[in-house]
Each structure stands twice: as structure tokens, then as C-alpha cells.
Amino acid sequence: MRQITTERLIIRPLQVTDHDKLEAILLDPAVVRYTRYRDVKTPTNFTAIFESHFLNTAYTFGIETKDEHTLIGFYEFHPEDTTGILTYALAQSAWGKGYVAEVGSAMMAYGFNVLNFERIEAHYASTNPRSGKVMQKMGMRDLGSMGTFPSPHTGEVRQVMAYELKRADWIADNKQEEAV
């Protein structure tokens, strides 16, 4: 993947030099509370996943600020047939600044145009409604609940919500924006 820039961010492949910064982000329990990475609890666990999953892939990207060139998080697709299931996480210091929606717009284009997904889907825990709002900002459509699941760590029962964006809808929305 080439580097993609937005107004405030650089989206790029993760590099070996990102190890320590991404480790600090993913070992923060508040950051990973609702993600698939909540079981990565030690530096050894992180290093194994960093080497096997985060490097040399067309599906995982670092998010870096343009002004400070600091890695603040990641954005990734988990391919399932013609669907990309997305996951993202930001350092707490980057929360509430609109970064995920900004990255999401660029990554939707990448997912449809380069990775050739027909559909992009995202999930979030109902106890984290800010993620749902971000998905709406990215142009995704609310699919409602996927079901109720207990947290394997706390026993807290969570409703998992889903959003999607289909290629045809994304194309139609982008053509409409260009015509305005």
C-alpha cells in the first residue's frame, strides 16, 4: 500500500520501528476494551502478534499525525470473502478528535478500489456508542444488533451492533458528492 494522506493524518503501512508505540497503544486496557486485541496483555503477546499480523500486509495500516509524525493508532480490514471487517484503535490521547472518521473515508475508498471488497462491515459494543457514531460518519448503515454476548473477562453482557457499507452505495454517494 502506498501512503495516503488526509487533512491531518498519514495512513501508511506499519513498520518495525512502530513496535514500541503500537505496543503502548494495545497494552492500554481502555484502548482495547472493545476490540479483538483485548487478550494481548504482555509485551511477549504483543510482539508475536505484531510480527505475524501487523507487518507486511495489505490490510493493516498505521495512523500517524502529519504535524508531529507520531503513530496514534491503526486501522485494518479482516477479509472474509468479498467483505472487509474493519477494526481500529487509537491511543487515548487521540480520542475525540475525529481521526477515525477522517481515516475511515480514505480507507473506504482503499477497501473498495484497491482491495475490491463488495462490502465493508464494522461491529461495536452497545456500551461504546461513540463507535457507532463514527461508523455513521463514515457513511455506514446501521444493521442493528448481532446478538448479546457476555464479556469473557468481566461477564458484563454486551449487545454487539453492526454497520455496513456496500460498494454500490459508496459509489452512488461519491458520485452524488462530485455532482454537487
Rank of each mutant, 00 (worst) to 15 (best):
Y34C: 03
A91M: 00
M107N: 12
A172M: 11
S151A: 10
H53R: 13
K166E: 10
G84T: 12
L27C: 01
G96Q: 05
H153M: 07
E7G: 14
Y59S: 02
L26C: 07
V160S: 04
N113M: 13
F54Y: 13
F112Y: 07
T127E: 04
L71K: 10
F46C: 09
D20A: 13
N116F: 11
I72V: 15
E76D: 12
V157C: 01
M161N: 02
I49N: 05
D173E: 15
F46M: 10
A125C: 04
H153S: 13
V16P: 03
T60D: 08
A58F: 00
T65Q: 07
M108Y: 01
I49G: 03
M161Y: 03
S131R: 00
E7Q: 13
R12F: 09
T60Y: 08
Y124V: 02
E156D: 09
D18A: 10
T57S: 15
W95S: 10
G73Q: 09
Q176F: 12
L143D: 11
T148W: 04
E118M: 03
K21C: 12
D81P: 02
A91I: 04
R36K: 07
V31N: 06
H53E: 10
R33M: 05
V16E: 15
G139T: 09
I120V: 15
K21Y: 04
Y75T: 01
V100D: 00
S131Y: 05
F77V: 06
K166Y: 06
T6N: 10
R8D: 09
A109V: 05
N45V: 05
K175W: 05
K166M: 11
T83L: 06
W170E: 11
G62Q: 12
D39Y: 08
A172I: 05
G111A: 06
A94R: 13
